[in-house]
Amino acid sequence: MSEHELRVAKIRNGTVIDHVTAGQALNVLAVLGIDGDGGLGVSIGMNVPSDKLGTKDVVKVEGRELSQGEVDIISLLAPEATVNIVREYEVVEKNRVERPARVVGLLSCPNHNCITNADEPVDSAFAVVDDGVRCEYCGEIVREGIGDHLAVD
């Protein structure tokens, strides 16, 4: 087993986000605001064979647990994802993500003419609908490519 595989396989303390829809790993990192600058140990597996999904992505982050808001957005990008909390190399908690009813302040509206994109003191707000999310201000619906609209700096 190479050192690289070993590193992907185990983290000591942190979070493993497994069963991520193939192709969404980098968006998951974007949701977490991880760009490599922060010094966190991060491992990514992309297009890893999966019994359940055919192929999947896996994201492992050393020394970091997720907020509810982050889990909410991940649920939209990767509805099948599981979030595993690891302490001393052991998975101490394993949770399936659940789609929230709405997400506030986490996505930006793709409608450039939406008031939430003007310089106003409000957070964006999206209702989660059957097959996507919907801006509560302008009604714009986002189905594909939710990861392209993350409200991250």
């Binding site: 409608n111 003419n113 939406c114 008031i115 939430t116 994109n117 003007a118 106003e120 409000v122 801006c135 509560e136 201000y137 302008c138 009604g139 714009e140």
Partner: peptide
């Protein structure tokens, strides 16, 4: 009346 969609909702808040 405002040129941006959602302006009235925002104002009402």
């Amino acid at each position: 009346r405002h040129p941006s969609e959602g302006a009235a909702k925002l104002a009402s808040e």
